[in-house]
Amino acid sequence: MDEASEVNGGRSGSALPLETSFPLEGDDSRIAQARHVATAFLVKARDHAGVPVAQATVEIVQLIVSELVTNVRKYAPGPALLTLRIQETLLTIELWDSSPVVPAAKAPNPERVGQHGMEIVAALAQTLTVEPTSGGKRITAHVALDGGGS
Rank of each mutant, 00 (worst) to 15 (best):
I120C: 09
A123I: 04
S98N: 10
A123P: 03
L68C: 03
E19T: 09
A80G: 15
A49I: 11
A105N: 07
E59R: 11
T89Q: 15
V43I: 13
K106G: 14
I86Q: 01
V69E: 00
S98E: 12
L24M: 03
E59K: 12
T20L: 13
I31F: 03
E25K: 02
V43E: 05
I86W: 08
L128T: 05
A76R: 03
P103C: 02
I93L: 15
F22Q: 08
G26K: 12
G50N: 04
D28P: 00
G117E: 10
V65T: 07
P79V: 12
T39G: 04
K106M: 11
T89H: 14
A32L: 08
D97K: 04
T39Q: 06
T83V: 15
L24W: 00
T92P: 02
L81Y: 08
V101E: 15
H116A: 11
I86V: 15
E25N: 11
R73Y: 05
I86G: 01
T92F: 14
T39H: 00
E111M: 09
R112H: 07
L16P: 03
R73D: 02
W96D: 11
S98D: 07
A45M: 05
P108M: 10
E25Q: 09
I64E: 04
V43R: 11
L68A: 05
E59V: 05
P23M: 09
P23Q: 07
A104L: 09
Q62V: 00
A76S: 15
A45F: 03
A123L: 09
A34M: 00
Q115W: 06
F22G: 02
A107S: 13
G78V: 00
P23K: 05
I86F: 05
T20Q: 06
L16E: 12
V65N: 02
R85C: 07
P108Y: 13
D27V: 01
A45K: 07
S29C: 05
A15V: 14
A32K: 10
V102G: 01
F41H: 04
S98K: 10
H116I: 11
S99P: 07
A32H: 06
E59M: 09
I60V: 15
G50C: 04
V101G: 02
A34G: 00
I93S: 11
I64L: 05
G78W: 06
L82P: 01
R112Q: 13
Q33W: 00
A80P: 14
A40T: 01
T129P: 04
